[in-house]
Simulated assay, not measured.
Amino acid sequence: MTEWAARRFWTDATAEPMEGGGHTVRLDGRAVKTPAKSPLILPSEAMARAVAAEWAAQGELIAPLSMPVTRGANAAIDKVRPQRAEVADMLAEYGDSDLLCYRAETPEELVARQEAAWDPLLDWAADTLGARLEARTGIMHAPQDADSLARLRAAVHRLDAFELAAFHDLVSLTGSLVIGFAAERGQGAPDDLWTASRIDEDWQAQQWGEDEEAANAAEHKRRAFHDAVAFLSLARAE
């Protein structure tokens, strides 16, 4: 049995400004709405144009996975905005168990790789965000400094719904609040930040061989990370 898919029902997709601010996308003159039937009001013309381009590029059958900007906008409006404080709190919790803080004891080469990639990011967070997170060896949880966590939480709460939708993916895909902030603030190339989040997995693959299913899953996550970086840039475009 083939899966049902919605069919294209429009000819033209256009990005247009809205009275009172914001932009929207119209399909043959009809404004697009989110899955929850909310108006699709976008924060920038650049994002509206990107959404319109995704709708214009669809074939006879609509392929939602080919529309990352549209999906991100829907998530910001339908999922994040109604519970923005809760989403921000959930993401801020990553700071107390940040990937960058849990280090291997051995072998020396893995320890060195973690230090080389992760120590500069922790130093950057301390200097830029005023939040010093401490590294430790092993996997047992050890609480971080309460003041540092409070500063990170406050920074997360300053993000608006569209920024937070992108930030959710940046953090959850990497397991690191610090990497999420580094990507959000342009501290390092996205590829370098993604590679930093994959040190342990890449090490294991080098030692035992790469599993095809795991590699495919990792590539899917890598693309999603880049999509989140691009979405954040569109949300902040003038």
Rank of each mutant, 00 (worst) to 15 (best):
E3N: 01
S66D: 14
R30Q: 11
D145E: 14
S233F: 00
A237C: 10
V111R: 15
Q206W: 10
M90E: 04
L110C: 02
R8E: 01
L133H: 06
D119H: 11
A166W: 03
T11L: 14
V178F: 00
A165V: 01
G175N: 05
W118V: 09
G180Q: 03
Q83D: 12
W55L: 09
P120D: 11
D211V: 00
R236S: 04
R7F: 02
R8H: 09
A53F: 04
E212H: 08
L100F: 03
S172H: 06
P120A: 12
E3H: 07
A135M: 12
W118G: 11
Q206C: 10
I199K: 07
L40R: 00
E108Q: 13
E45C: 10
L27N: 06
E210H: 08
A6E: 10
W10R: 09
D28M: 09
L149H: 10
I41R: 15
E109K: 14
L61R: 15
L152E: 02
L152K: 10
E93I: 06
P17F: 05
W118H: 13
E105I: 13
R71L: 14
R103P: 03
T2G: 00
A63V: 14
E163M: 04
G138T: 04
L173A: 02
R26D: 01
Q58C: 10
H141Q: 13
P190V: 07
A76E: 00
A224D: 11
D123K: 13
Q144E: 12
Q114R: 11
F162M: 03
